[in-house]
Amino acid sequence: MIPVQHNPKHTTTNMNTQLRHLSLVLALLVSSATTYAADKLKVVATIPDLADIVRQIGGDRVEVTTICKGLENAHLVTPKPSHLVAMSRADVLVQVGLSLETAFVPGLLEGAQNDKIQPGKPGFVNTSEGWQPLDVPKVLDRKFGDVHPQGNPHMNMSPKGGRQMAERVLAGLIAVDPGSKDGYETRFAEYSKKLEEAEKRWSEMEKPWAGRKVIVYHKEYDYLIEACGLKLVGSIEPKPGSAPTASSLAELIDMVKREKDVTIFTAPWSNNQAVARIVDESGSKVVELPNMCGGIPGTESWIGMMDLVHQRLSKVFGSGQAR
């Protein structure tokens, strides 16, 4: 064994060197963390549902700004200065499409003049691509109200919508940021597992609902109704986007009385006097459902929102095993 001579000077020098190395490593870490933060993908999501899914798949790699708030009617959103600024700096714009966001996306795209997120560019992610929409009009005419040429745009309210949106978000993020592909795919796989579990849970809960009659205020629950086997018998808006009139309400109330046991689905933005009148005159039940994430406690995530939707409908229609 070789004796080691204690040399205080050497120890001090060693400590100084170690400290220097440590500071260098710390500086590098801080610097790389700063660079990493600065390099985060800036994503603008039109609705909170998409924002949640982008965060689920993008993780720490993305910084997300949302335009719509959870209680709003997406067709009537007025953009704010912060939305214009966010769009001008965005690397990615994620939208539902099908003309859901026609009130604000075209104007913001024009004002922001950000070439990275223009339609056709990798940074423009249209999550309804490949979706089979309902209500595609056979004739395009304003006579039929505020029709959406490509079909019903409220696909975020379909229990299958989460998977569709997640797949498109994954493809979009990889297209813009292929270097982080592994991370996106890993997180997508985790999210996909959660979706699978949730879809099974919802599917069980929906079993007793088949054939139950429903009217809606605005045609934003058509996908939910179809997926749950419910029967849509009318809408309070006589034509999409048109407010009910005295005569249209009277006809609807007559129909609801004839049909019996009709439940009204309404969103927070549309739970108004017209709904109250139908309830008063027909004795129908009304269920207020979220139409986007984040407006009602417990709906901060898309899966959480769909859970809440199923819980509320279970209270009216009963439920299969899962709760």
Partner: peptide
């Protein structure tokens, strides 16, 4: 100055 309610219905 413009203000909209949380639902965007009133302004």
């Amino acid at each position: 100055y413009g203000w909209k309610s949380d639902t965007g219905v009133n302004a």
